[in-house]
């Protein structure tokens, strides 16, 4: 078994209206339940908007703290799920369900082990 990071990318902007968001959250919860039942679920989280992000980096001997996301982009990481899967096809199967539930593109990356 290997682990994969499924990153959900969402456009910058205000959150969708509650009547749009609610069914999505329900689908997402159902999918998390399905992943847990299958023994595939490792961890999942949704993130606050990038406005809330802070970047910390080393500069010489100092540690610099700056406001904002690491990179300004039209899409950003909105949430992620870590899964356990036998191979890429199995991971892509879960990613397909995740993109259907969220209606957002999902990037699949293998975790180094």
């Amino acid at each position: 078994m290997a682990q994969y990071l499924l990153s959900i990318y969402q456009p910058v902007g205000p959150a969708p209206a509650p009547e749009v968001l609610e069914p999505i959250m329900r689908d997402l919860e159902a999918l998390n339940g399905e992943m847990k039942a299958a023994g595939a679920w490792v961890f999942a989280a949704g993130l606050h908007p990038t406005d809330s992000a802070t970047v910390v980096r080393q500069q010489g001997s100092e540690v610099m703290i700056t406001d904002g996301p690491f990179a300004e982009a039209k899409e950003h990481l909105g949430g992620f799920t870590v899964i356990e899967a036998a191979d890429l096809d199995a991971a892509l199967g879960w990613a397909g369900k995740l993109t259907r539930a969220t209606t957002l593109p999902v990037e699949v990356r293998p975790v180094q082990h």
């Binding site: 290997a2 036998a86 191979d87 890429l88 096809d89 699949v108 990356r109 293998p110 180094q112």
Partner: peptide, 13 residues
Amino acid sequence: DARIPYRVPQGAE
């Protein structure tokens, strides 16, 4: 690294 499987897909796939 991504473990692309070595098999012939079956059925609906």
